[in-house]
Design a protein around this nucleic acid. Structure first.
Lengths: 227, 227
DNA sequence: CGCAAAAATGCATCAACTGCAAAAAGTTGA
DNA sequence: TCAACTTTTTGCAGTTGATGCATTTTTGCG
């Protein structure tokens, strides 16, 4: 019990509280409330994925999902905007700041495509964290094409941020590629990698299949320039 | 015009005759019924686009749309699967058979990327037919991000067919690119071209902006191989 | 005209989703 | 421990999108 974090001091510093909070125990365990919230969220995702896997997307109602998770139907919508979001376990997993910083500063390699690849790898890495649930989500997307639309919605949420990142890099290190095209490139690499990962039985990390996707793209271009 | 691909022969194929018959007599004017159907459909699209442009997507109900178009709300769903489809004026514009045939037979150029470009050009050409409505649809997609999801749904509908086309070509003229990646490539080129077309004020044809999209992609690849 | 096919319509119904206010659970400080 | 407080859950009523079914209206055609 080393009192390194003085979080019981009452009066003193102004930022100490926030500092303590930041350093304190894993970001998910700061009180029963937070823990229950997280737990319920996961319970809802599990319930949704399980039921959909068994009965199909359209045959499952939010009422069933909430019942299985042991909460009221109304509570369901406190956690997710839509049924589909719950099935996908949609996290707003943001990009790590250091990765973004490096990219904006001209990226690790200085070659746009390679640097975008690093960006995508970072996105895939966050997906690896919730391995099981992501795997089930990817499986379900294969079976239920409607969910693919939500996948696009997920990109929408990040499109703004991605756009800003691309523009920021462009400012200091100009390139001619449309932001629009780059956004779609990210989606393409993401989906292709995830698809390959799933074909491989979801073993290892999804990012391992990223280089293959990129080289396919390069081959495609090379074959067109000098057949 | 090297006739390496025997695709202009008349007699051989069995389904060709029926196809010709089906396409015969302007496809839209074979009786009052067909004409009315088409007219109502367009009226619904116009009503939907107009109302959404004015009030926003969420503030417009199918009841309003059908009222403005002068039909019953129930009839609306005889024409469209969803409100969003009506706003987008979603046509199931199929690819012309000759274009598909050429592509499957090794495509006009024999280079995969270039041939996909021709495929996309054909898709964009069908979009040019309903010039005004497509333009409004593109505009609305910019304003209402939710519609972008339906754009993805549109791809879904064609993804199966596209996949078959790619597989058919692959059988006789093997290539290593994933079908998944090619599907996304088509989407990328479509969206980038449409975006450029819209930035150019929707003048001329959307397909005119396709070469730029492709060359951007090539530049991206070239810059990565030999910086 | 009169009959058959096709389309439009009315009606009942389900499910997704939202706002609101009351109740319950967690948190804080003395 | 108790009592104010904040946050979250929950019930309820209501709107809207969407579908199935039966009925009526319209259209095509001899």
């Amino acid at each position: 019990m080393a009192p390194t974090t003085p979080r019981e001091t009452d009066a003193p510093a102004l930022g100490l509280r926030e500092l303590a909070d930041a350093l304190e125990g894993t970001p998910a365990e700061r009180g029963l409330r937070e823990r229950k919230k997280r737990s319920r969220r996961l319970a809802l995702i599990d319930a949704a994925q399980e039921l959909v896997a068994e009965h199909g997307l359209d045959a499952v109602t939010v009422e069933m999902i909430s019942a299985q998770a042991g909460v009221s139907p109304r509570t369901f919508f406190n956690y997710f905007e839509s049924k589909d979001d719950a099935v996908l376990g949609a996290e707003d997993a943001g990009l790590p700041d250091d990765v973004v910083g490096t990219f904006v500063d001209g990226g690790p390699t200085g070659r746009l495509l390679s640097d975008v690849q690093v960006l995508v790898a970072a996105l895939l890495a966050t997906a690896d964290e919730g391995h099981d649930r992501v795997r089930r989500a990817v499986d379900l997307v294969q079976q239920e094409p409607r969910l693919l639309q939500r996948h696009m919605a997920w990109l929408d949420r990040h499109q703004k941020r991605l756009g800003e990142i691309f523009e920021a890099r462009r400012a200091a290190h100009p390139f001619s590629t449309d932001t629009e095209l780059l956004n779609l490139l990210v989606l393409m690499l993401l989906r292709t990698s995830l698809a390959a990962w799933e074909r491989a039985g979801c073993t290892g990390r999804a990012a391992d299949h990223l280089p293959s996707a990129v080289s396919q793209l390069l081959d495609l271009a090379a074959g067109d320039v000098a057949p």
